[in-house]
Amino acid sequence: MSGFYTLLHKELLRFWKVGLQSICAPMIATLIYLFIFSHILEERAQAYPGVTYTAFLIPGLLMMAMLQNSFANSSSSLIQSKISGSIVFILLSPLSYMEIFVAYVLASIVRGFLVGAGIYLVILIFFDMPLQSLSWVFIFALIGNGFLGVLGIIAAIWAEKFDQLASFQNFVILPLTFLSGVFYTIHSLPPFWEGLSRFNPFFYVIDGFRYGFFGISDVSPYFSFMIVGICFLAVSWVTLRMLKTGYKLRQ
């Protein structure tokens, strides 16, 4: 077990050593988004009755920042050690593939939570935010960060170069986050795009997370939880298979 703690500790140390870049940068970026969009779009119709556009926007931006960071954490750590070759030290160790998996995912979750908590605290200074259910907020943050942490592992195992990882980020992660209802409710979309959004797991992460703040959402949080849970288990299963068979890592 202590081999696992060492790997987890090392992964946490890694982003802690570049703390400013890994935690403060996304905080600043999100706050800039928030001030610009809320300023431009505040005049728009309210998405939910009694919820200002700015308030509506906050959970979405918060979750988006967390998802991007949990993905970035596992994927950048793995791809760097893969390309520099220092991944051999993990591959040579007696760590089981399950321990490797859990350590990387947990480190991603911690990074996501730190970024999320940082942004949330700053937001509380400027805006008045309701909080209907801390449990749902926590659950969706946990599972969303976990989901993206796992996707980060898959992307980094698959990618052979940094630019392939960047493509994964630009062609998969980014569109999915932007088309997940961060900036709008999907009910405001044309039917085709609304239908398509329902196949986007990120939509359920954000919708459920938003429910935790307002007690209102496009679909039931239980349903969202189920969908995201299934997605998380599915990608975890794929990742564990990859690690177990040594796909691309042990040629």
């Binding site: 202590s2 081999g3 703690y5 060492t6 790997l7 500790h9 090392k10 140390l13 890694r14 050593k17 050690s81 520099s84 070759g85 220092s86 051999v88 030290f89 993990i90 040579l92 160790s93 007696p94 760590l95």
Partner: peptide
């Protein structure tokens, strides 16, 4: 893997850590 120690041919290292940190982390894996 617990029984074997391997010195790889490629010069690889983790740029985030010092020599002693590298060795304590490596010990921790075992």
């Amino acid at each position: 893997r617990r029984i074997v120690g391997v010195v790889p041919q490629e010069l690889v290292f983790d740029p985030f850590f010092s020599v002693r940190e590298t060795l304590s982390i490596q010990s921790g894996y075992y």
